[in-house]
């Protein structure tokens, strides 16, 4: 079947099967491999993208359901010249990643959170990241990065 959608502001079309997942279409169909597939069971959140402005796990949505939608991925977050957006820059400044596998999903979830709640508390950040797993960092620097990206002073994070 044929779909057309807007990905990172650009019109895209593709031929897919009914069973093609959105994550698979983005990666294999469009070559946007920044969307990572970790667990493929909608638990880890590495595949989070935005569909019509809200965060979804792209491994648990069919590409056919994104027909006519606006999809935003990690590739659309930095400026065209490569300048990182405020969340990405904060992840770099606060060492919010180690291996980096979960980072695309973390950044996209953080972007969704800050859109809904521009000045979240530390507890709100942690609650919002319930569906994003990181096996390296212990989350502290991810939480600090997101609080910094929101423009708030950084509190001392627990266990520091």
């Amino acid at each position: 079947m044929h779909i057309s959608l807007t990905v990172n502001g650009t019109e895209k079309t593709g031929e897919i099967e009914g069973r093609t997942l959105l994550s698979g279409f983005l990666r294999d169909g469009l070559g946007l491999t920044g969307t990572h597939v970790g667990c493929d069971t909608s638990q880890c959140g590495a595949c989070v993208v935005h569909v019509d402005g809200v965060a979804v796990k792209s491994c648990t949505m069919f590409a056919a359901e994104a027909d006519g939608c606006a999809v935003d991925t990690i590739e659309g977050q930095a400026a065209p010249d490569g300048t990182l957006n405020v969340i990405q820059q904060a992840f770099q400044d606060h060492h919010g990643l180690q291996c980096g596998f979960c980072t695309p999903g973390m950044v996209m979830s953080a972007a969704a959170l800050l859109k809904e709640n521009p000045k979240p508390t530390e507890a709100e950040v942690r609650a919002y990241l319930e569906g994003n797993l990181c096996r390296c960092t212990g989350y502290h620097n991810i939480v600090r990065a997101i609080l910094a990206a929101s423009g708030q002073d950084l509190p001392a994070v627990a266990a520091e």
Partner: peptide, 9 residues
């Protein structure tokens, strides 16, 4: 229910 991304779908 679930997590934010699950609640959106």
């Amino acid at each position: 229910i679930g997590d934010p991304a699950v609640r959106n779908r």
